[in-house]
Design a protein around this nucleic acid. Structure first.
Length: 256
DNA sequence: ATGGTCGGGCTCCGA
């Protein structure tokens, strides 16, 4: 069972790449972020034509998350609990083939410091509380998405160039560790402990050409999912196409 | 070296 996460930076702008990649990579589940469209504008027909179903939470212009799957998408929960005032479309969770999956678009948090960084830390605190409840289910759970956090120096092409950035802030990293240390497995790091594996390259300054990237897209596995972990990686190929997203898919393969 | 380039939606915001 292949589960992937991909920040597409506008699902409508990325329909050709998304459709081609679904056909080539054939994932069982895809967790999308940054749809950048309202529900009514989601390209449902184009995606269904590829053999996938979709559940999603859209929003005008910003954010937006989706779960695509070839099998049924059940028990959908939209929104991260803990703040009824939060209107940003950043969280969707569902069950596919017995695996609980979440598509998460964590706040970027820049400029740092400021209210956007405070919102990021608040969102992380809510995610920490919710993740603890998911672990208690003692089921296979995969928390995938754009976390907007580089967990360690190995996940950044150049820490100096990122000085002061919310993506490498010690408070962001500490919040990430608090979640992981509950008992989650960072799937790509588990399979590739030392590799520089990036999932994002900024559009400007030919960052992809020079492999000046960041690892900010992650798949966290509950122990019951980690038991089944066979392989994990990023698929760099979509990032090299014309009109790419600035992110490329990260994926895990689970036994069964 | 505080620039550069995208996407969305409409003269600038978010990343």
């Amino acid at each position: 069972m292949k589960i992937a996460t991909w920040n597409v930076n506008s699902v409508r702008a990325r329909v050709p790449h998304l459709v081609a990649w679904l056909g080539r990579f054939a994932p069982d589940v895809v967790l999308l972020q940054e749809l950048k469209c309202m529900d009514a504008d989601f390209p449902m027909m184009e995606i269904e034509a590829t053999g996938y179903r979709a559940s999603f939470q859209g929003q005008k212009s910003y954010n937006g998350v989706a779960i695509l799957a070839r099998e049924a998408i059940e028990d959908v929960v939209i929104g991260l609990p803990g703040d009824p005032e939060d209107a940003q479309a950043r969280y969707i969770e569902a069950t596919v083939s017995g695996v609980r999956v979440a598509s998460i678009y964590l706040p970027n948090g820049n400029p740092n410091p400021g209210p956007k960084f405070d919102y990021k830390l608040g969102f992380l605190a809510r995610l920490e509380a919710h993740a603890r409840g998911l672990l208690a289910l003692e089921r296979p759970v995969v928390l995938g998405g754009d976390y907007n956090i580089c967990p360690t120096e190995t996940d950044v092409w150049d820490e100096k160039a990122m000085a002061g950035d919310a993506l490498i802030d010690p408070l962001s990293r500490a919040a990430w560790r608090r979640i992981v240390n509950q008992g989650w497995t960072d799937a790509l790091r588990q399979i590739h402990p030392q590799l520089r594996l990036y999932s994002y390259w900024d559009y400007f300054r030919d960052r992809f050409t020079h492999d000046h990237g960041l690892r900010i897209d992650h798949l966290l596995l509950s122990p019951q999912a980690a038991d089944r972990l066979m392989d994990a990686n990023v698929d760099r190929s979509p990032r090299g196409l014309e009109k790419p997203s600035d992110h490329t898919p990260a994926w895990v393969e689970l036994r069964g």
